[in-house]
């Protein structure tokens, strides 16, 4: 499995990271909640109740309109380059869904919010998924596909 060459973008990535952090801080300040993509989405899926669906849907709508807002300013839609076949996206997506549910969070919930609260569970989860992702990429690109 080969990749697609990408350019190093330290400033845009840093600015994006700061915005992700700002959004996390604002949700904590306004609602006292962790901004985790997994938790916000999962709370809308059964058997979770529809009692607090409103703010979750509003937040997800905000996320989805992010790319259009970027296009409004820069004139170009953010690039999405998928270097793997559709079947791998489907398999990867299903596995991600299972993992983040049992692991109680993903990159945003554990990696940003949990780490910022110095939660030991989040630190261990983040180290685990970062290491396993690197290992998976190594195997797929250099062992199987090498």
């Amino acid at each position: 499995m080969t990749g697609i060459e990408t350019t190093f973008t330290p400033w845009m990535s840093l600015a994006g990271g700061v915005l992700i952090g700002v959004a996390s801080v604002l949700l904590m300040a306004v609602q006292g909640r962790i901004l985790g993509a997994t938790g916000i989405l999962s709370g809308l899926l059964p058997p979770s109740g529809a009692a607090d669906a409103g703010w979750r849907v509003a937040l997800l709508l905000g996320m989805v309109t992010g790319p259009a807002a970027v296009m409004g300013v820069t004139g170009a839609m953010p690039v999405v380059q998928v270097p793997v076949p559709a079947a791998m996206l489907a398999v990867g997506g299903f596995i991600v869904g299972i993992g983040v549910t049992f692991g109680s969070g993903c990159t945003s919930g554990h990696g940003v919010c949990g780490m910022a609260r110095m939660s030991p569970r989040s630190a261990v989860a983040t180290l685990t998924f970062m290491a396993v992702t690197a290992l998976t990429v190594f195997v797929l690109r250099h062992v199987v596909g090498g």
Binding site: G99, F129, V132, T136
Partner: peptide
């Protein structure tokens, strides 16, 4: 769960 997530992310 975190390890499984890593496999899917990779």
């Amino acid at each position: 769960g975190a390890a499984v997530f890593g496999v899917g992310w990779g």
